[in-house]
Design a binder for these strands. Structure first.
Lengths: 126, 126
DNA sequence: TTGTTCCATAAGCACTCACTTATGGAGAGG
DNA sequence: CCTCTCCATAAGTGAGTGCTTATGGAACAA
């Protein structure tokens, strides 16, 4: 939910997406990410560091200290949140996963389509 | 690719995400989208129209003219592009989908090459 | 015709945010 | 100790963009 929001906000930036694509090749220290990004165009080390911070806060990457290096890797938490948000959008049944029987009943019963009515017509809707 | 980039850029805005969530309940004319968004806070009709345009360009929604109304619905094109981008990130084999035979060969050869024995052998490399 | 509804576009503005340079802390080694 | 490498943070700046109000076109009704 709000995790998906943070992740999708982070994915809104093309440079951050490229960082993730770099990390999809395996974990790398921050410096290696900088080098990889520089093959697509000039960018400063602090810029990459700031992007990594945003991705970290969004759960899209993880960090591990190794000596003087900070090794980054793809983070399942954020990626799963995005995937679930997408599924929820597409799959109309997902929000009703709990009362599954009630939903099935409604679907079976339901083909007599009713259009929303006019004045005062707030129909019974489960 | 660039379709995923456009879609992810569009998904970077919270208001646009809410538009998609509204449309996940079924297709709606633009005015109904405005009404739905207003339940979360004040917003102008042009603002929603501009967001719908961005979503349309990104393939995340489709439009259909119906009389004087413009009926919007979720667009598969953009959503699929995002899903595939996510899969490509996570699945390390995806980039090698083309030379599938070569990959299979490599896998088979790897198994043949190392025939570790007994209980003690733990070395497992990917 | 006139009037009304629905919606997109134009123009302008404020604010976010991605970038830069400068700086300093933490670890490894001489 | 000192030095070098690696990296994060601070501070400031410019461009992008999401918002607003104003406007007009298109379809339908009277």
């Amino acid at each position: 939910m709000t995790a998906a929001a943070a992740a999708l906000d982070a994915l809104g930036d093309p440079t951050r997406r490229r960082v993730l694509e770099v990390l999809s090749g395996g974990e790398r220290p921050a410096g290696a990410v900088v080098d990889a990004l520089r093959e697509h165009g000039p960018i400063s080390q602090p810029a990459v560091s700031q992007h990594l911070r945003v991705l970290l806060d969004a759960g899209l990457v993880t960090v591990r200290a190794e000596g003087t290096r900070r090794v980054y890797a793809l983070g399942a938490e954020g990626l799963v949140a995005v995937r679930e948000w997408l599924v929820r959008l597409t799959d109309p049944l997902a929000p009703f996963a709990q009362p599954l029987d009630a939903l099935a009943t409604e679907v079976a019963r339901g083909r007599r389509a009713r259009r929303p009515e006019g004045p005062g017509g707030q129909a019974r809707r489960a």
